[in-house]
Amino acid sequence: MNLSDWFKGFEKGISCLSSEQRTSFFSECGKNCVKCGTLQIYQELYEKANGDLNIFFEEADRLLGVRSEIIEEDSIYHLYFMECTCMLYQQGYVSTPLLCECSKQSILYILHSLWKDKKFSVSICESILRGSPHCKMRIEINDGNT
Rank of each mutant, 00 (worst) to 15 (best):
L3T: 13
L3Y: 09
S4V: 08
D5S: 13
I14S: 00
S15C: 03
S15Q: 09
C16I: 01
S18V: 04
E20G: 03
E20Y: 01
Q21V: 06
R22D: 00
R22A: 00
T23G: 02
T23F: 05
F25D: 02
F25P: 00
V34H: 07
C36P: 00
Q43L: 11
E44R: 12
L45H: 07
Y46R: 04
A49R: 02
A49I: 08
G51Y: 01
L53W: 13
I55N: 07
F56W: 02
F57R: 01
F57E: 02
A60W: 07
R62P: 00
L63E: 05
R67Q: 14
E69T: 02
E69K: 13
I70F: 04
I71L: 12
I71C: 13
E72C: 04
F81T: 10
T85S: 10
Y89L: 09
Q91T: 14
G92T: 11
Y93K: 03
V94T: 10
L98F: 10
C100P: 09
K104H: 09
K104V: 09
L111I: 07
H112E: 15
S113M: 03
W115V: 05
D117E: 15
K118D: 04
K118Y: 15
K119R: 15
K119Q: 15
S121G: 08
S121T: 15
S121P: 03
V122T: 09
V122H: 04
S123H: 14
E126K: 14
S127L: 06
R130A: 14
G131L: 09
S132V: 06
H134R: 11
C135D: 05
K136P: 04
I139P: 05
E140C: 12
N142M: 08
D143S: 12
N145Y: 01
T146V: 06
T146Q: 09
